[in-house]
């Protein structure tokens, strides 16, 4: 497998006459933190669903972890982790039950799941939560646990869809510590966010406008390229076009 763990080439998805994702091409390297930004309705979710093997492209191609997203969807799913803000764990199951359930889905042995659960909760200093119902936990804890759950089967790539929405500013930064740690260990992170300060924490950032990637570079270079003080200013400059749609 090459150093590029995500390769998209002219990736396109149409819904009827509407082109949601329009010939998008990019590559993401192993261990990179890749920020995937765009206004609501710009096509981020559609692109992400294709990369996760959940939606077939209309044309173009992409490989994730070395597998084709159209013809090898099951292999893609096996090699990626996914976490969204909206749904990640079953609230009426305990933390341990959630891990056993997800681990089971991925075909992991009970013994392995329990070992990893113990290790992960130890690192997060959340061992006390093992037998708590997920619904009873603070949102900041839930999000850290969801992240661990998404890494339970040790995927090489993790897709994070607005993982930090609504949590307090400290919990939000603690969550980014987890992202940095994972990237340090060689895990590739593909993340969407509406917090522009978080865009600065990415190695590279792409900005989608009306289904196309209009900018792709490191935050520093993007700021230079658009002569902007912050990523927020870059985003406002680029994404304004979509706001009236």
């Amino acid at each position: 497998m090459s150093d590029k763990v995500i390769i998209a080439k002219d990736l396109t998805r149409k819904f009827g006459n509407f082109v949601a994702v329009d010939a998008v091409s990019f590559e993401v390297s192993k261990g990179e933190i890749f920020g995937f930004l765009g206004a609501n309705g710009a096509g981020k979710t559609t692109a992400m669903r294709m990369l996760c093997g959940l939606l077939a492209p209309t044309s173009g191609a992409a490989s994730v972890a070395g597998f084709d997203i159209a013809s090898q969807t099951e292999m893609v799913k096996k090699h990626i982790g996914y976490m969204s803000q909206k749904f990640s764990m079953y609230g009426d199951l305990t933390v341990k039950e959630n891990f056993l359930f997800y681990g089971g889905v991925y075909g992991l042995k009970r013994k392995v799941i329990l070992e990893r659960l113990d290790m992960m909760l130890g690192l997060l200093q959340l061992r006390e939560a093992t037998n708590s119902l997920v619904d009873s936990l603070p949102l900041g804890w839930k999000q850290k646990l969801s992240f661990s759950l998404a890494t339970l089967h040790q995927p090489g790539i993790i897709f994070l869809d607005e993982p930090t929405g609504g949590v307090d500013p400290i919990a939000r930064r603690q969550f980014w510590d987890l992202i940095y740690e994972a990237a340090n260990d060689g895990v590739t992170i593909f993340v969407t966010t509406h917090y522009m300060d978080e865009a600065e924490y990415c190695d590279r950032v792409s900005i989608m406008v009306d289904g196309k990637i209009e900018a792709l570079d490191s935050p520093e270079n993007l700021r230079k390229q658009f002569n902007a003080e912050s990523m927020d200013a870059v985003f406002q400059e680029l994404a304004r076009g979509t706001s009236t749609k």
């Binding site: 765009g38 609501n40 929405g165 609504g166 509406h194 985003f235 406002q236 994404a239 706001s243």
Partner: peptide, 14 residues
């Protein structure tokens, strides 16, 4: 109550 949660920065500003 949280009218802008999950809304992109441009729409939020508007």
């Amino acid at each position: 109550d949280e009218p802008t949660t999950g809304v992109d920065p441009v729409s939020r500003k508007e």
